[in-house]
């Protein structure tokens, strides 16, 4: 697998009279975990949605694809009526096959669907109603659908929300494995210790870029200590690592 590289050139976004993003210039290298960090309302999701072509942004976002152009997208949440009669397997089916999902999962997809659900620890709940799952379980299912068909670019909007430690470990391991195999991951992440630990690059956004680079370098700057008052957490992570 060969993930794409992505370049943001002078990207800005105005919604109504509000400037959401301004003067965004940075690059995402192929095969890396690139975390997008920032305060609530700082424009992280808008940046990602601009990249996905869902926002009326200005400037240029170019994605240098190779053979596989599949994007696996894990949205922030699934906002839907919790009483809808949609099972986990129905949801996965509707994302990955054309055959109407009420006729069942096609035999061609059954193997990969089962293995992906197994991977995120949801195989035992594939017949549960989507609305009856906990927030963390739903995040696991959202991650599972992003892996079918095999993507070369993973875009994750706070995938760890509501996840228990086991769930976090499973998703983190899957993302690391994905990028180790050559895929590119763009990941909105609030856990700065985790960013420090596993990301090869990070960008801090609060309407504009405040930090950009390797977390192990940029998080030791004075700006970083102002942005993250709880950098002692990071210190413990550093000590653990050493």
């Amino acid at each position: 697998m060969h993930g794409p590289s992505i370049t943001f050139e002078d990207v800005s976004l105005d919604l109504g009279n509000t400037s959401v993003l301004s003067g965004i210039n940075f690059g995402i290298r192929a095969g890396e975990i690139h975390c997008v960090v920032g305060a609530n309302g700082g424009g992280k999701t808008s940046l990602i949605r601009s990249m996905l072509g869902q926002m009326p942004h200005k400037g240029n976002i170019s994605i240098e694809w190779h053979d596989n152009r599949t994007i696996g997208y894990v949205p922030q949440s699934l906002d839907f009526d919790k009483t809808l009669p949609v099972r986990v397997i129905d949801f996965i089916g509707m994302t990955c096959q054309r055959r109407p999902v009420f006729t069942g999962i096609s035999s061609a997809k059954r193997g990969v669907v089962d293995s992906v659900l197994e991977r995120v620890g949801m195989a035992g709940k594939k017949n549960s109603m989507l609305g009856s799952l906990s927030g963390g379980e739903r995040q696991r299912v959202l991650f599972a659908q992003a892996m079918i068909p095999e993507p070369s670019l993973l875009v994750l909007d706070e995938p760890m929300t509501g996840l228990d430690p086991d769930g976090k470990a499973i998703i983190e391991a899957a993302i690391v494995e994905f990028t180790t195999a050559g895929g590119t991951a763009v990941w909105i992440n609030h856990d700065i210790a985790q960013v420090y630990e596993i990301a090869q690059a990070m960008t801090y956004i609060d309407r504009e870029i405040l930090l950009d680079g390797n977390p192990r370098e940029v998080l030791t700057t004075g700006v970083a200590s102002q942005l993250f008052p709880s950098l002692d957490l990071l210190g413990s992570a550093t000590r653990d690592a050493s």
Binding site: L52, G53, Q54, Y73, D79, V86, M94, T95, V101
Partner: peptide, 21 residues
């Protein structure tokens, strides 16, 4: 409607995810 059933369903559950698909 039959060939588009899944797509319509996904578009109503999460338009952003549907667009990426």
């Amino acid at each position: 409607a039959l060939p588009l059933y899944n797509r319509m369903l996904l578009a109503s559950l999460n338009p952003s995810l549907a667009h990426v698909r």
